[in-house]
Nucleic acid binder design. Structure first.
Lengths: 228, 228
DNA sequence: CTATGAACTATTGTCTACAATAGATAGTCG
DNA sequence: CGACTATCTATTGTAGACAATAGTTCATAG
């Protein structure tokens, strides 16, 4: 049932991916203007496909466009971070309600693999990769529901969270106070999922989300303080 | 705090709105191919802005685009309808959790007005307008949360639901078995919101959603049966 | 010295034209 | 007579150029 829809990507998709990567990697600072002609030179394409790519990123919430004033990388306020975190939490809850107990074993396998990857990263104290692995783990949990729109919405929200973290290196360095405790929480989450008890997973997810919320808010706050 | 950001809409926005309206009004059938040149003639614009508009609609889930094969109006399967309804429900739940008890009285006013409009439509037995008014009512409930991303996500999902209903007139004619009972349920919902009891609203919303689910599924099913 | 206005430049919005490809149709071979 | 292949056409993908506007800078007047 996995659809291997291999189809040559258009320049629009390639451009959108490239710019998305640049933004999430922090190569483009928040609030930075995206000059179309400059991007066309960098990417080696012409403006029409680039502009279509910008529309895609705009819908994804990574950039903001005002008529006649061009596009800029989205600037996230505390309110934005609040919105992202609450929305993410709500989507995860739906995913658990629909996906636990697990119906399709293959999907569980993906989550298990992601967790193993997280544990490897924690052992190597590689915080950067741990963030990525954590992202994959959560995505795989959401994928348990077999709900395409949910997955897309989640990916979009998670992406904005990465943008939020890309804006200050501080978060990337200090994000997880205790790596192993962090991974242990994820292990517990997966165990509960495997046990097939949605209520227990939701409860764990609640404290899980609470922690993320505090950590991110603190990091964002510290950035504001440190920039003065 | 209401931002009157008056800014002249670009052709992209105008085109997106126009095509969106055409799709939701049923003027473009589900699965119908959207030939770019034909649309440019209808709308009196050239292809670049049109293509950007199509990207917007693609991200909104109203059309599907495959590389080198153009765009077509999205075709919704039963799985799609399931996804739309569950997602909508999850978003409404988040809205209630954040928005009840009501913090900003002005927002409640909007919901009250929408409900009055619903009651007027029910009294006039105008099912078409009732659907619209119901949409506004639910949107205003979601707006209680003061959560921009939530509102946008909800609008997108709700829009797809309208697409789902646009594909068969049957749903529009017979959607609400009992108009007044339907409106009464909404009245109760708003009363609970005003009372400021999130748990009670969530409980009512659950049965509310359950009903919508059955009604829509039945209508979709009947369409499939009646088309043979 | 400051504030207001106009001209200018950088950038976006839009259009026309060309290149490339997927689907269709007809022709030919088995 | 059916199936496969080649050509052809309709449509999408991309490029480059022109038009319009917002922000900036400089000049001038108060």
């Amino acid at each position: 049932m996995t659809e291997h829809q291999l189809q040559s990507p258009s320049l629009v998709q390639l451009a959108a991916n490239a710019i998305r990567r640049m933004i999430l990697a922090g190569e483009l600072a928040e609030g930075e203007r995206l000059i179309e002609e400059r991007l066309t030179e960098q990417l080696g394409i012409s403006r029409p496909p680039l502009r279509e790519a910008l529309r895609v990123l705009e819908q994804e919430g990574l950039i903001v466009t005002r008529p006649r004033r061009g596009s800029m990388v989205a600037t996230l306020t505390d309110q934005d971070v609040f919105e992202i975190l609450t929305l993410r939490s709500a989507l995860e809850r739906l995913a658990v309600e629909l996906g636990v107990p697990v119906q399709v074993p293959e999907r569980l396998k993906v989550a298990q693999d992601a967790l193993l990857e997280m544990e490897r990263c924690a052992a190597a104290e590689d915080r950067g990769s741990l963030v990525q692995a954590g992202y994959k783990f959560h995505s795989s949990l959401v994928a348990l529901a077999g709900h395409r729109r949910l997955e897309e919405a989640y990916a979009s929200v998670q992406q904005q969270l990465l943008l939020c973290m890309a804006r200050n290196l501080y978060a990337r360095e200090h994000f997880y106070e205790d790596l192993h405790e962090h991974v242990a929480r994820h292990r517990k989450l997966l165990d509960l999922v495997e046990a097939g008890d949605p209520a227990a997973v939701l409860a764990e997810l609640a404290v899980h989300g609470e922690r993320s919320f505090n950590e991110i808010q603190n990091n964002v706050g510290s950035r504001e303080a440190s920039s003065s």
